[in-house]
Design a binder for these strands. Structure first.
Length: 461
DNA sequence: AATTATGATTAGAG
DNA sequence: CTCTAATCATAATT
């Protein structure tokens, strides 16, 4: 330091005219040149330094700068100056050391990385386009997670992923560019000043650190975006969608036809899930809700129960008719389009009037009818109608059954009420203290519809 | 706007 | 894990 100061001091008064220097003193002694005899030398140094200053001032004047640099490089005194610089550096260089060597793997960054990986943003590209991704997801055994809702999410996610990747790439590229630029600069400078490889390394790592901090910001904002997207799309609680009419239909059918033990097995749940195109857990949710809500207010559900009981009954009858027809070796072409029409009509009817007769009929006000499932319905209707399936015109036979039902309904549509609030009967295996009986008896669980042709109105295959 | 319906979540029991 | 019961938050209806 002292020396430097001294040199500078000396420079102060030196005339700037360039004197040529005599006597090539290759290496100025490290210490103690007290300025005794080097007048010309001083001037020379002053000259060079002045040039350096000037260059620094006009460093942007490209061609000129180059020229001057070249001049400097070729200057006789250059090696000498260089070595001086080397020495100075040697002495001062130690000061810039221990600036945190190996970068610690920043837990914050790790967290972000892990999350991005988990969300499939930074992981391996899977699927590319959103449609392809959705299709792949649907095709893969993944339980068909409501892919309609999901595809939107996936599209958005892949959009985020794309942005993230391009940005990342951009940063990386910029980082590399900058690094090489700096390296070149340093390399060039290394001709005029001593630069150890360690220093270059340090510089590079500083640059990388800067860029990685930028990357972290990118990752952070990407994470945020994903989280927002997630909460918007995947938190189904926020964006609750009702199941399709058809799905609830199917679920209700199952529920009311298994009222005595509305606990679908795992397989049954899967089946229902597939039919309704919802997930198994959604089926479970549905049944959980249904059970508890049914139990809480049976009266409120009577109508629905009747409706579905009747429906399954009709379905069973319909199926039975078909079966019988089959057994009668008639042509397989079903000639019962008319019947179907009637079927709908029937549903309409039963929905329209506040049918409570059916309630009495099916939900066992008498206590005898505690299983409003298709099998029983079928049987009872057969009995109702008197004759059996042996009749010649079976289609008409079933038709008449339905008609009979309708008749009864319309006849008795008058007196109802009193049962909505007062479920004095505990139908369908619902015991007194809340909770269904352990009705594990297969006869009540499995549809006993072993009518003619063994017809299952059950949802199981 | 208020109310009801409904799917999902939660705590807690088994 | 499944199930119940309570609860939440939103959709649908009045």
């Amino acid at each position: 330091m002292d020396e430097q100061a001294r040199i500078m001091q000396a420079l102060g008064g030196v005339s700037l005219a360039g004197h040529s220097v005599q006597g090539g003193m290759a290496l100025p002694p490290p210490h103690g040149h007290d300025g005794t005899d080097g007048d010309g030398r001083k001037q020379d140094i002053g000259d060079i330094l002045h040039q350096i200053m000037t260059i620094t001032d006009q460093s942007l004047d490209e061609a000129q700068a180059k020229h001057r640099k070249h001049g400097l490089n070729c200057h006789r005194m250059k090696p000498a100056l260089f070595s001086v610089l080397c020495e100075i550096k040697e002495k001062t260089g130690l000061s810039i050391r221990g600036a945190q060597e190996e970068d610690p793997p920043d837990p914050q960054l790790m967290r972000l990385d892990n999350m991005l990986l988990a969300e499939g943003v930074s992981g391996p590209e899977k699927g590319g386009g959103s449609a392809a991704a959705a299709a792949a997801a649907a095709a893969a055994g993944s339980p068909t997670d409501n892919s309609i809702e999901h595809s939107d999410y996936r599209a958005k996610l892949s959009q985020i992923r794309q942005i993230y990747h391009t940005e990342l790439e951009k940063y990386e590229q910029a980082c590399n560019e900058f690094t090489t630029h700096v390296m070149n600069l340093l390399r060039e400078q290394s001709r005029t000043r001593p630069i150890s490889p360690k220093e270059i390394e340090r510089m590079v790592s500083i640059i990388h650190r800067k860029f990685s901090s930028i990357q972290m910001q990118l990752k952070q904002s990407t994470c945020e975006a994903v989280m927002i997207l997630r909460s918007r799309f995947l938190d189904a609680r926020r964006k609750r969608r009702n199941f399709s009419k058809q799905a609830t239909e199917i679920l209700n059918e199952y529920f009311y036809s298994h009222l005595s033990n509305p606990y679908p097995s795992e397989e049954a749940k899967e089946e229902l899930a597939k039919k309704c195109s919802i997930t198994v857990s959604q089926v479970s949710n549905w049944f959980g809700n249904k059970r508890i809500r049914y139990k809480k207010n049976i009266g409120k559900f009577q109508e629905e129960a009747n409706l579905y009981a009747a429906k399954t009954a009709v379905t069973a009858a319909h199926a039975a008719a078909a079966a019988v027809q089959n057994s009668q070796t008639n042509s397989p072409t079903t000639p019962n389009s008319g019947f179907q029409m009637k079927d709908e009509e029937f549903q309409l009817d039963s929905a329209e009037n506040k049918n409570t007769l059916l309630t009495n009929m099916f939900t066992g006000s008498s206590g005898s009818f505690n299983l409003p499932n298709s099998g029983d319905m079928f049987m009872s209707m057969q009995n109702l109608n008197g004759d059996s399936y042996q009749g010649a015109q079976v289609g008409a036979n079933v038709q008449s059954q339905v008609d009979t039902l309708r008749h009864v309904i319309s006849q008795t549509a008058g007196y109802n009420d009193a049962l909505g609030v007062n479920p004095m009967y505990s139908p369908h295996g619902l015991n007194g203290n809340g909770g269904w009986h352990d009705a594990t008896t297969p006869s009540s669980v499995i549809s006993p519809t072993e009518g003619p042709g063994s017809v299952h109105s059950d949802t199981s295959n």
